[in-house]
Design a binder for these strands. Structure first.
Lengths: 136, 136
DNA sequence: GTAGCTGCAAACTCTTTGCAACTCT
DNA sequence: AGAGTTGCAAAGAGTTTGCAGCTAC
């Protein structure tokens, strides 16, 4: 999702496009990783030092509720965020902390099948793999 | 895993079988749900009111490190625990908070395949489905 | 003009930890 | 005896919130 699109989506949802908000959106769109609030805050500060941590928290939570960003809670004790792209899952490198994205068609089908068998309508789901790189 | 087995496993690992520890183990073994620390604490208190929250935290963490219990971090802001049984996954009912366990052979195979393709040795993983019950 | 947004600081929740006393083995 | 364990209270991390002032629309 491009910055322009994101801003439009926010406006449509009734959000005011304020300075802090624009900066945060820009940081999120440009992020190629899965930054934590601390990391987002640092990147935002580099552009506009007046923005507060509270605003970063409020903004990412609002965006999450609007489904414009996705909040991830890996087993680290804090949340990470990314702008919504295609649906994918994560392999977390337990040594380096690297997060590798992957998609898998079979998995998407399988998860629907499992939910159906349990009598549930699927709203959200996530598969996290924790692994160690095989040396070659 | 039975209480007896768990206690033996703890002793083998060099843990002393103290009063608080025994009570916590008993509560964990008898739990048929996935209790949070608060819930474990309440159940332990009902048996022995002198046990502290700190001890519950220390104990479940120790047991988790020994792989005698599994710590789950669903998207709720706190951890849940259960004694180790066969490997399974969870469907979380977003309306009631109920946690339904399920196993799936295809999934186990698929996750290994994915890890291999990414060049990783799988250490841990979890699939969480969040859904809403289909009325019938 | 006004509803919504912001910064600040305080508060909150969950969890961890330092320490002196205590207890299994 | 001695290492491990405990309760207590304080501290820690991450996150949320009340409020008065500010800003986009």
């Amino acid at each position: 999702m491009k910055l322009q699109e994101l801003e439009t989506a926010c406006s449509k949802s009734g959000l005011k496009m304020t300075g802090p908000r624009k900066t945060i959106l820009k940081v999120l769109v440009e992020a190629e990783d899965h930054p934590s609030v601390d990391e987002i805050y640092a990147r935002v500060k580099a552009v506009d030092p007046s923005v507060s941590m509270a605003t970063v928290y409020r903004t990412v939570n609002t965006l999450d509720e609007l489904n414009l960003v996705t909040k991830h809670e890996f087993k680290e004790g804090f949340a990470r965020f990314e702008t919504n792209t295609d649906h994918h899952h994560h392999m977390i490198d337990v040594d380096s902390g690297d997060v590798i994205e992957f998609t898998n068609v079979e998995l998407e089908a399988l998860k629907e099948k499992i939910a159906e068998e349990l009598g549930y309508e699927l709203i959200d789901h996530n598969l996290e793999l924790y692994g160690r790189k095989i040396k070659d």
